[in-house]
């Protein structure tokens, strides 16, 4: 963490208070560009914290991956070289094993179920585990629901996926899932995906509506299937030592601000998913409704390989 005297922050709101409190500056890494709802939420979070602490805690948001990519940010937060980062649960699951359960296929029946789980006891328990790994986290952001999309051949049933080269994130779960669906999981650097779709190196990829639109992938792969295989939440993580170094008041202010920002972010993210769904449809993408249960059944054997989540999964399903 870095503490420094900053004249410009204390001048504005509370010049009448006279005392010059030391401003705590926390740096937060965000890998999405400025216009993404997650990034907007981070700016809002920063504003709220500043407001609630009378400018005593100042969060500086570095958006657009300026401070490096996600996994590197996690390394940095854990090491204490970076104070905070907004990251997806998938890479965090490599450290905090328990959160991996939220990154399994079809774990949430619908969004209501998802929020019930995340905001309830189970979500709290998982957040508490972060402390064992030198970090803290304050709740779950909406990161969209991932679906498959393809270039030429639409996916209208599991059968259609046979032999398709689908770009996935290089995680065991994604790889295994695509294999179980009969497709060929193809690893590829994210920056290359657009051209690879265009030229036919791969037949498809998977992501939520927002990324599908902002990455321009919809232009090259106009068939979008609403199968909803993954819905991993995002989080703000913070180094535990830095957190412990804050006063209780400041900690409370951060927690409250996070809660408000998350609430707003979920709403705006969901709106944006709808908005971009319309955008891509207008641009000529075709959206396919499918029998989700068929996909679920095909993927089910994946859970045999995750005995560590058995109990958690049961509890999550019980909340449906």
């Amino acid at each position: 963490s870095s503490s420094e005297e900053t004249g410009n922050t204390s001048d504005e709101g509370n010049s009448d208070q006279g005392e010059k409190a030391e401003t705590v500056v926390l740096r937060l890494a965000e890998n999405q560009p400025d216009n993404n709802p997650v990034t907007i939420a981070m700016y809002e979070f920063a504003d709220l914290v500043e407001e609630k602490t009378n400018g005593e805690v100042k969060i500086e948001v570095y958006a657009n991956g300026q401070l490096g990519e996600e996994t590197a940010n996690i390394d940095q937060v854990q090491a204490g070289a970076l104070d905070m980062a907004r990251v997806n649960s998938v890479p965090v699951a490599q450290i905090v094993d328990e959160i991996g359960v939220f990154t399994t296929p079809f774990i949430f029946a619908d969004q209501e179920h998802k929020y019930r789980v995340l905001d309830g006891e189970i979500g709290e328990e998982v957040l508490a585990k972060f402390e064992d790994h030198g970090m803290v986290s304050f709740g779950y952001l909406e990161a969209g629901t991932r679906n498959f999309y393809t270039t030429d051949k639409p996916i209208e049933s599991v059968e259609d996926m046979k032999g398709l080269r689908i770009r996935v994130q290089p995680s065991d779960i994604s790889v295994k899932m695509v294999q179980l669906l009969g497709a060929v999981p193809t690893p590829m650097d994210y920056g290359e995906v657009f051209t690879a779709l265009q030229t036919g190196v791969i037949d498809g990829a998977e992501n939520d509506f927002v990324s599908y639109y902002t990455s321009g992938h919809f232009e090259a792969a106009p068939h979008y299937t609403l199968n909803g295989h993954l819905s991993p939440p995002a989080l703000v993580i913070m180094n535990k030592q830095t957190w412990d170094g804050l006063s209780e008041e400041h900690q409370l202010a951060i927690k409250e601000s996070a809660a408000i920002a998350i609430e707003a972010q979920r709403e705006s993210m969901n709106e944006m998913q709808e908005e971009f769904r319309k955008e891509v449809e207008e641009a000529g993408s075709v959206i396919y409704e499918v029998d989700v249960e068929e996909f679920q059944e095909a993927i089910n054997p994946i859970f045999d390989e995750m005995p560590q989540y058995e109990e958690l999964i049961e509890r999550i399903r019980a909340l449906q």
Binding site: A72, A79, G80, A81, L82, D189, E192
Partner: peptide, 20 residues
């Protein structure tokens, strides 16, 4: 400017560990 040095050296690695 009190930037943690660890960040620089970590970036020296991620700069090369780059598919591009």
């Amino acid at each position: 400017y009190e930037i943690p040095l660890l960040l620089l050296f970590q970036n020296m690695v991620s700069g090369i560990n780059n598919f591009t």
